[in-house]
Design a protein around this nucleic acid. Structure first.
Ligand SMILES: NC(=O)c1ccc[n+]([C@@H]2O[C@H](COP(=O)([O-])OP(=O)(O)OC[C@H]3O[C@@H](n4cnc5c(N)ncnc54)[C@H](O)[C@@H]3O)[C@@H](O)[C@H]2O)c1
Ligand SMILES: NC(=O)c1ccc[n+]([C@@H]2O[C@H](COP(=O)([O-])OP(=O)(O)OC[C@H]3O[C@@H](n4cnc5c(N)ncnc54)[C@H](O)[C@@H]3O)[C@@H](O)[C@H]2O)c1
Lengths: 251, 251
DNA sequence: ATGCCTTTGTGAACGCGTGCACAAAGATGG
DNA sequence: CCATCTTTGTGCACGCGTTCACAAAGGCAT
């Protein structure tokens, strides 16, 4: 998982479990696709397949929102789209700021998938004077000096951090002080925030490392018959757990 | 969480719980920082704080790897770095291919955080003839026609998909057929893969929606005293749960 | 050598999440 | 109006993950 909440042991907000909340966007995506194909109703089985989850799990998830289905028929697609959107707060317009307009920040600014979900990029911020004033994704890049003013004036409550790890905590502090209460962090650092502020992190490097772990395990399992795997690690694999000398030994 | 595994109910691979595996990269990052500052040993309490987790959880996580600590002293930083690296398979070199060299794919290609962890970009692939042959991040962009050859020749077992959702399943199928057994998917689609192939997904839109949910909940809680929040949703907030007419009613 | 102090490693309890399996509900056809 | 069939909503059990709390282990000073 590239993400995880910080603090708070998965509080059950308004009776909806955190795990369910995390799946609602998945259902919404599948439902939106059905809606565009003008499908009127869908069964829990069909929708679950489309969303890649168990149908019992899906029904239980929906039961937290209320009884929106019709037995013997299924769920009304349009109605469910509305209910989930409302539950997720997507009937509102959420202005966000992106701090750090480098490779990743620029890619996010150019991404169309945010606006379609009610997230509007209110401003792009960067420290670099060479970027300030330039236009990225049809939007001027503002200097971080104006961070507090921009956040306040636009009523921004969600901030996206796409700067190197070194400056992330400081930028985070400024965002929080200015009124931001939700942060999406791409910098590989642990951010500490006061109570009441949510932080979610996306760390691509961690995702790859988790894949590598399982990849190594797969390669190790059939170490007796490695020939049936068309692709393997490029360098010489160390099949056995342990068995080679550590680079550094403890004192 | 921006990520989650597909299929398989969290199998305990080689006795190490999935949740622990997901945290090992976090510990490794914190340990690497300590190592660079030449800190010889660290206690579970200190390291846990640096990694943003509970110290008891950290100790239990490490206990799955073995008894690498010294009571009364703590853990040897260098030794632990090595052990975790080995456990994650980072002592190997993992060649990866990135399919889709658009905004996001290019940002990933430019990212230096991969190579530093043993992940080497073996090739960039794109369908667009206008991109083919051009250089991105000092590396030529190959055409997707050569996907199978490149994967086979380089022994690639990890593929990164950064193309629009429409073509993701097809590219996924080709990667798997060519021998890729781990996929990191950025396209907002559910990928179906055969047994033995791991898929992890990163969906930024989902992350924002989860933040929006909690943001709305926070705004709704103190609906009686909204004045003490300096920043709020830009449009008129609908404070109460329900109470307004749905845009669409069920038949 | 001995006692004290720090910190690990883990047993045990608890809570959350998942999935099975089924009764109730409602639609549909005769 | 009744029988049948489909599909929801959920009670229940189970397993994983988290956290507490503490005994054991080892270093260190005297
Ligand atoms: N590019 C990727 O694919 C990728 C992948 C994973 C993680 N990340 C992480 O995302 C972050 C950004 O990556 P990137 O590749 O876009 O880096 P980058 O160097 O291309 O861009 C960083 C930008 O942030 C600006 N910046 C630096 N410090 C700042 C500050 N204090 N205030 C405001 N702006 C500041 C810089 O001027 C620069 O424009 C890094 O933490 C990186 O580790 C990136
Ligand atoms: N840019 C972002 O910040 C961002 C954020 C979240 C999710 N995503 C997702 O990541 C994916 C890529 O986003 P992007 O902004 O880079 O898009 P993009 O349009 O900038 O780039 C897509 C690239 O993929 C190539 N492509 C398309 N179909 C292909 C195929 N079948 N085989 C090989 N190459 C193909 C295109 O030629 C193009 O170069 C999308 O699924 C998008 O939803 C992007």
């Amino acid at each position: 998982m590239a993400t995880g909440r910080t603090h708070r042991p998965a509080t059950r907000s308004r009776g909806i479990p955190e795990a369910t909340v995390a799946r609602l966007p998945l259902y919404l995506r599948a439902l939106t696709a059905l809606s565009e194909r003008s499908v009127p109703t869908v069964s829990s089985e069909e929708l679950a397949t489309a969303a890649g989850v168990n149908s019992a799990k899906l029904r239980k998830d929906f039961s937290y929102l209320g009884s929106y289905g019709t037995r013997g028929v299924g769920y009304d697609v349009e109605y469910l789209v509305y209910q989930i959107s409302r539950e997720l707060g997507l009937t509102q317009d959420w202005p966000v700021v992106i701090v750090g307009v480098g490779n990743l920040g620029a890619a996010l600014a150019n991404y169309g998938g945010f606006a379609s979900r009610g997230f509007r990029v209110a401003a792009l911020l960067d420290q670099d004077p060479a970027l300030t004033g330039r236009t990225v994704a049809g939007m001027p890049v503002s200097h971080t000096d104006d961070l507090e003013r921009i956040v306040t004036e636009n009523g921004v409550s969600i901030g996206v951090i796409t700067i190197p790890a070194g400056g992330a905590q400081q930028v985070c502090d400024r965002l929080v002080a200015a009124g931001v209460t939700s942060i999406l962090n791409f910098a590989p650092t642990v951010l500490s925030v006061p109570e009441g502020v949510d932080v979610r992190k996306v760390d691509l490097s961690i995702e790859l490392q988790i894949l590598a772990f399982h990849e190594q395990r797969k390669a190790g399992e059939d170490a007796t018959a490695p020939a049936d795997l068309p692709a393997g690690p490029h360098t010489t694999p160390r099949k056995g757990p342990d068995g080679d000398v550590p680079a550094v030994m403890p004192a």
